[in-house]
């Protein structure tokens, strides 16, 4: 009986423990912001590695998602004789949902996993210990810049995803299927509201960015200092990020729209 209760309780208590550890980590990262502000080049480097190097995958994915939306939307709307609203359909689905969610998940698998692996390897090879002994706090020097780089990158990448997606949708709807481009754009302009849609999209992306970056650095720091440890942490980063983003998306959507 005791064993049964223990085995049910353990996942919960380890989940609570993880939440506690992540919040403490977040607190420490926030406390290191003054240190980071004196060394902006650390963030620029991270922006390059996690942001700039993700541009291609985000742009290409956005383009294809937009094309699929254009194709599906056109077929469905045609049945109701309302293909003219294709522009609104593509833009709203991208800006409100697909853009932030898919960008965050793509970011987790492209950059987040890399962040986890790098931190995990630095831990396994005692680089973090060495830094500690040189009385440099690895949280300030390594973790905080990676986290902040991620938080800045995700919203920008999301906007890029949205833009490429809309262009992809336009390519299918207008250039391939022959919808009038004036109608496509004017319908879109009518229905997309700057505050309700675009600002909320950026807020969503920002929150996703915070969660995905925090999960990535936390998994790196808590990985076991072995090859298997690092690889399992990398997997966890992608899985936990995807779950967190999808669950958060539901909550945020309920509040926002």
């Amino acid at each position: 009986m005791k064993n049964l209760i223990q085995s049910i309780g353990r996942p919960f208590s380890s989940f609570i423990l993880m939440l506690g550890e992540t919040s403490m980590l977040l607190g420490k990262i926030i406390l290191s912001i003054p240190y980071i502000l004196k060394r902006p080049q650390l963030i620029i480097k991270e922006l390059f590695f996690s942001g700039v190097l993700s541009i291609v995958i985000i742009a290409v994915s956005g383009w294809f998602v937009g094309m699929v939306l254009g194709l599906q939307g056109y077929n469905t709307l045609q049945r109701f004789g309302s293909v003219s609203v294709l522009g609104s359909l593509v833009a709203l689905s991208l800006i409100r949902e697909l853009g932030p969610v898919l960008s965050a998940i793509l970011f987790a698998s492209r950059a987040g996993s890399g962040i986890t692996a790098e931190i995990g390897l630095m831990k396994a090879t005692e680089q973090l210990d060495a830094m500690n002994v040189m009385s440099v706090d690895p949280i300030k020097r390594i973790i905080a810049p990676k986290f902040i780089g991620g938080v800045i990158s995700v919203p920008i990448l999301t906007m890029l995803f949205n833009t490429c997606g809309i262009l992809g949708g336009k390519f299918v709807g207008v250039n391939l299927l022959g919808l009038d481009s004036g109608i496509f754009w004017s319908q879109m302009q009518d229905s997309v509201n700057f505050h309700a849609d675009i600002v909320n999209s950026i807020i969503k992306a920002l929150i996703f960015g915070i969660f995905v970056s925090l999960i990535s650095v936390y998994q790196g720091l808590s990985s076991k200092p072995t090859a298997e440890g690092v690889s399992s942490s990398t997997t966890k980063t992608v899985v936990h990020s995807a779950l967190a983003v999808l669950a958060l998306d539901f909550i945020l959507t309920a509040f926002m729209f």
Binding site: L121, M122, T125, E126, Q127, D129, A130, M131, N132, V133, M134, S135
Partner: peptide, 17 residues
Amino acid sequence: QIRTKLGMLFQFGALFT
């Protein structure tokens, strides 16, 4: 403060890669 006064060579080097 104490750590700034000591240097340590790690068994496996621990260079920043």
